[in-house]
Amino acid sequence: MRIIPHLKLFLILILLSILIFFLDNARFLQLPKTALSYITTPIQFGLYSSGQTISRQFYFIFAARFAAKENKALQEQLAQIISENAKLRRDLSETQSLLEQQKTLDPRVYNLVAARPIGLDRYLKIDKGFKDGVKESQAVVFKDNFLGKVIKVTEKTSSVELLTDPDSKLSAFSINKNGKAKGILAGQFGSEILMDKILHEESIEKGDLVYSEGTEGFLPRGLILGSVVEVLEKETQIFKQAKIKPVFDIRDLELVFLMQE
């Protein structure tokens, strides 16, 4: 048995390959190559274009998969952009509130600190505490409306007693074209405020604005406390009363202001 089978043929083919290689490098085979290309080029072109046609039929499968991935990525991006947009809108709204507040209460007269409401049950919780210079009994306002008084302060948050709180009692007055009425504003359980101790001869009507007297010391005179929604008058009673409703709903406010001085 031969160790190297077909040795003679193998060597002949090797030598032929080397010979053809050198002939090709010396450009002696250009003519037969050109002639053969007239046959092979159309076959190559036909196969290639058939392959392209077939792959185009299946392209939509890959395109659909890619589109699904792209859709998912875009949805994530959109969610992120919506979130950023919401944050920017909130920042813009707060900035506008700050500017409007400065128009109503002169910052040269009042030292106001902006705070965000972060919770509401019996008391309104805000995101400023004694680290921000908040103290008990400081007034909380929005534009020229009095909202409440700080009653509890922690390091980073504070609780605000609202006008509707039953512990809240303020001296107030209202003015209309017929005159002035004075009374005591007291919170009721729920969301009502009652202005009590109004003399019968003093004029008060539905729609009148109620203002702070400022006698308590922690808030200035002339801040709006609410508007009259109903006047309760009984001849058998010594005083008449008026139901008061705040001008702003606390839940609609994104920013409130603390009067520090």
Partner: peptide, 23 residues
């Protein structure tokens, strides 16, 4: 020829590979 390479290169390689396998 189809790959526009120098003629003889692939034929040399293929012959060597086939002979190696047969051995």
């Amino acid at each position: 020829f189809l790959e526009s390479q120098a003629l003889g290169v692939y034929s040399l390689a293929y012959v060597v590979f086939i002979q190696s396998i047969q051995m």
